[in-house]
Amino acid sequence: MYARHARPAFDLDFKAKTQRRRPAPQWSEIRLLEEFSPWVLTCLRKIASFSELGEGWDSYGSARVQAPAVMAATRFISEIPLDRVPEASVSPVPGGGIGFHWRVADRDLEIEFLPNGTAEYLKSGGEKSEEGTLSNFADRNLWRWLAGEAT
């Protein structure tokens, strides 16, 4: 359910990024950096650097960050269907996964990519919280919620 007159905390532009480009004869897929929010490149480089962490990177014997988690997190961050999602905090997670965190006003969104590449989310705001599995990266409801446009 969406609050009709709520003003989103960040700009929601759902236009698919790839549709902005004119059709081209190229077949290979690529997402041009000019289509991304400026923080995405930094985030992608951070994710790539997690691959270089060895066993026990957290000093507590954690497994290294697993390749399926790196690949899924990379795909996720480059497929976020919004232009102006605020910058995420990203970090390796003990056990071999990768975690993202956003805080907008009093709303927190955490997304964790497990070592096998599957993703779970936890959203919390005020006294409510909800968790689930993230199966569709293009799902906009989480972003609407984070922007304060949906309840």
């Binding site: 997402r31 950096l33 990379t74 795909r75």
Partner: peptide
């Protein structure tokens, strides 16, 4: 510059 589907820059 771009990102490929496999995440490579």
């Amino acid at each position: 510059p771009g990102i490929r589907p496999d995440g490579k820059e």
